[in-house]
Amino acid sequence: MDKLKQLLKETLEKITRIKDTGALQDLEVKIIGRKGELTNVLRMLKDMPEEERKTFGQEANKTKQALQEAFDEKRASLSSSMMKSALSNIDFDITEPGIREQTGHIHPLAKVQWEVENIFSQMGFAIMDGPEVESEYYNFEGLNIPAHHPARDMQDTFFIDKEPDKKQGRLVLRTHTSPVQVRTMEKYGAPLRVIVPGRVFRYEATDASHDTTFDQVEGLLIDKDISLAHLKGVMEEFLTRLFQREAKVRFRPGYFPFVEPGLELDFSCALCGGGGCKVCKKSGWIEFMGAGMVHENVLKAGGVDPKKYQGWAFGFGLTRLVMMRYAIDDIRLLKSADPRFLKQF
């Protein structure tokens, strides 16, 4: 019996000292292998008296079991620490660049347009389209800008080389998205809640802040009781969501023949929060768009009864908004194919 205890004790001590799996294996064979020390002890059982054999046998089996467990445990611990040291001992440079699938780029104009459409959609505005080549009727007359009205000076127009139509006048490249106001009213009547993002054209020499081609967003809300207070509400909500910071709007008198009262709308500078900085020219306000209550003549042109319905319209420069958002200082970049520009988006 003592011999067994002795063996157990000595072996367990040896196991703790062992540092590699090979030595552990050797020891295991030596002690509990087929010709191992403990196995030899067990073989001696058959020569023992009945009584002794029973207790000794039980003890010997327990010892064997304990040793087996100790060997297994040591083996697991040795292999896990070996794995650990093997894995941590390799040269692997995690600062090398990741392997990326080539992705392309969405044009900044399209990105911001999508944002604008999303915000207005959430406020219940439908998104409308209209032709970019328009008739003078929809671009001007229908919007209460008769021929030879001084306001036509404000919008230098591209004309198409084509015989004019008796009713519609000449063909032009639309100078604003406003023609879609009358088109939409004609098609859907009132009430109406729409925005119209789209490309517009001006016959204007190109420089860093002017281009012949740019994008606008028109808005139109017509119902029975729509007021200027709603214009303030909608635009503050829109700008706040767009800039992700509380925006205030300010109205100033402005003149556009298709609205009355006519307004210029400024918003509190998103950069300085209204305190005054270089971007807002120290005024705290950024000029943003023209707006106003839709002129009676425009409602009539769209077949909407001005005695029953009233509402407002606005138009802002999407291109300008994009330039503001990304601090782009030259409008011509938006029409370039330069990857050094486009790949930034």
């Binding site: 406020m123 219940g124 505005f125 439908a126 009430p191 809640r193 729409v194 809300l221 119902d223 729509i226 007021s227 200027l228 207070a229 709603h230 303030k232 509400g233 909608v234 503050e236 909500e237 709007v249 300010r250 109205f251 100033r252 008198p253 307004l263």
Partner: peptide, 18 residues
């Protein structure tokens, strides 16, 4: 114009088409 409050219009029950 600065004295005009800011009010959100009620959303109509029937929303415009997509």
């Amino acid at each position: 114009y600065g004295n005009i409050p800011s009010v959100l219009p009620l959303l109509p029950a029937k929303l415009p088409g997509e």
